[in-house]
Design a binder for these strands. Structure first.
Lengths: 349, 349
DNA sequence: CAACCACGAAAAATCGATTTACTCCTATTG
DNA sequence: CAATAGGAGTAAATCGATTTTTCGTGGTTG
């Protein structure tokens, strides 16, 4: 029945042991790099490993160890550049430390988020990097707390009393956007976003508002916030413009909002920056090749991922310091979608 | 020393067993839904499970079983919408069957690809969904073959003699693009792509060329193919235009190529579709909100993922039929970036 | 020269399940 | 009524490692 020679069972530690004429324990020690093994025996083990092509089964290995070398990552989605890069980075950092990353998408659902977390808990992962759908106060974080899981919260979070958090410095970046827009003489600005991401969204909004008001007390800042759904935001934005409102600039607090704003502009036949200016939080590759190129806040994905993993591994190693909240500085790329309203005639609605 | 109650060990099957007053074997049977258990005992087990919050440890469970319920997925990158959606879909299908998906990015490197594969082999995954960096003839597929791994190849593949393959029907989609462009009176078309993805790229190119020639024998089709690197392609494209070539339309065989084409257009101050038309293989969300909206070939991600998983699980279940090569039909979305050359004056270079 | 120590290696326990093999019992059948 | 079949359950083996315990051998010391 054995028609394929490759189909045979992989060698186990015992196969190596018997081939090298030692016990399995000795093989284990050699593999772990323990020194108390006679050089001659170590060599025989190494030869046997080489000969048989032996590799440790991480599953069996992890079962016995105290801490399993698996890290879980939960992102709201994989489809955007931001989270795509994030997963890539996290995986790469995990790999560097000999951990396996298991990534899952909560698909913007808090219910799924908790389910996935439960499944990761079943795997007894050493730690979790959670980018919550909503914010740090959701059921997922509560679940982690209740079950004594170790983890780090990223992206749509500000700070937490149980977990380290790492996110972009939304407030500072937004303040810089405000400075740019005010500097270009915008005095009527619309901010669009989602109110669900409570803390982060508010930080972006308030950071923007405070900076703008400080520079130009007469500035008018309108706000269109949808609860959670992008399509609702689209409808609200449509209503807003339909009322005849004509801000000279729009600041979107998140990527999808930028897309929605752009598509509304095109519905109305407005062009950036002549008819209206646009800046969005979150950069994407395409934004620099379109015409006009879209101004955006670039989040430091690498730093966020790096510091998140750093914090996580510190906790896994047993760190007991009070949790810290990290804010990573963003870069604001002012591109062609932003101009000065004074230089162009506002088109009638 | 026990300062946190949540920190305690999770209940094992033995804890449940002793609480229910039965043996571990009985608990295992109840969990597996085996019928040969006295209803009364089954109930006691269920109660104990409920009370202790017991959940099976998939690691321990998999160690004992013949087939481990882990699926590996290897993608060239996570940053693009296509692969992001792909991973999301694959994860969701895996989850439906009670499998855990471990995804890794080869970061467009064949060396990494094989490394990752080796690591997945260490985990003794039940199967692998591999989207190879190059094509089906790379070292990764060879590794899988040599080690008797079961797997499915997707995306940058056409067919293989050892593995099932699933990919977009590049040739038909390209033919449709050709029909559209020829129909709009384009007679000088540039195709840009990467030659590394041999088979797929050639299918797209030949599908396009054949259909175009059939409809308009006088059509001139230029081709700019870079070996593997996007920046090289950019340079070659720049050279091409610098020579004074003025095709009326560009067909990009892959997403990054579309980005490169767009950015070269903007360097030269050309606008779509007045100065030049553009169609790209691979759609993205932003393409419908920019001005102009970019025409694109939409790949059926859901179908590809679904059929890949179907094929994979059939193999895992022991299917021994000869491998089949599936081609999923694409949709071509003609958007504003495509126009008729006759309607506009070509701008001098 | 007996007692003790250190070293290296093997034996055995362990991790948390699943599966096999075996033991009771009860019910059916010839 | 003895024999057999089947149901329900348990003890033990197993998966493939790691870790703890035990053991034997030499060398040192009092």
């Amino acid at each position: 029945m054995a028609h394929r020679q490759a189909q045979q069972r992989r060698p186990s530690i015992h196969d190596v042991a018997s081939r090298a004429g030692v016990s399995a324990a000795t093989v284990s020690k050699v593999m772990a790099g323990v020194t108390t093994v006679k050089p001659e025996n170590a060599q025989r083990v190494i030869d046997a490993v080489e000969l048989l092509g032996y590799r440790i089964d991480p599953l069996a290995s992890d079962l016995r160890r105290a801490k399993r070398r698996i890290i879980g990552a939960i992102m709201p989605e994989f489809e955007s550049e931001f989270f795509g890069q994030m997963v890539t980075q996290l995986e790469s950092f995990a790999e560097q430390r000999g951990y396996t990353l298991v990534a899952a998408s909560s698909r913007e659902s808090e219910a799924r988020e908790t389910e996935i977390l439960a499944r990761m808990h079943d795997w007894r992962v050493a730690g979790v990097v959670l980018a919550p759908v909503r914010n740090e106060h959701g059921p997922a974080a509560a679940f982690m707390k209740a079950n004594g899981m170790t983890g780090v919260l990223i992206d749509r979070v500000l700070s937490d009393d149980a977990f380290d958090t790492v996110s972009a410095d939304s407030a500072s970046a937004s303040a810089e956007v405000a400075r740019e827009l005010i500097g270009k003489d915008h005095r009527h600005i619309l901010v669009v976003g989602l109110s669900e991401q409570a803390a982060t969204g508010r930080a972006r909004l308030e950071g923007f508002r405070a900076a703008a008001r400080a520079l130009a007390p007469d500035v008018r800042i309108d706000v269109v916030l949808a609860e959670a759904d992008v399509e609702t935001l689209r409808a609200q934005l449509r209503d807003y413009f339909a009322k005849g409102e004509r801000p000279t600039a729009v600041y979107s607090l998140f990527l999808k909002g930028t897309l929605v704003a752009l598509s509304e502009f095109r519905r109305r036949g407005w062009h950036c920056p002549d008819d209206i200016s646009l800046v969005g939080f979150d950069d994407a590759e395409w934004m620099q090749v379109t015409w006009p190129a879209i101004a955006a806040v670039v989040q430091p994905v690498r730093q966020i991922a790096g510091h998140a993993m750093e914090a996580l591994f510190a906790r896994i190693a047993g760190g007991e310091e009070p949790p810290i909240a990290r804010l990573e500085p963003c870069k604001v790329l002012m591109r062609e979608s932003v101009g000065s309203p004074s230089l162009s005639q506002p088109k009638p609605t």
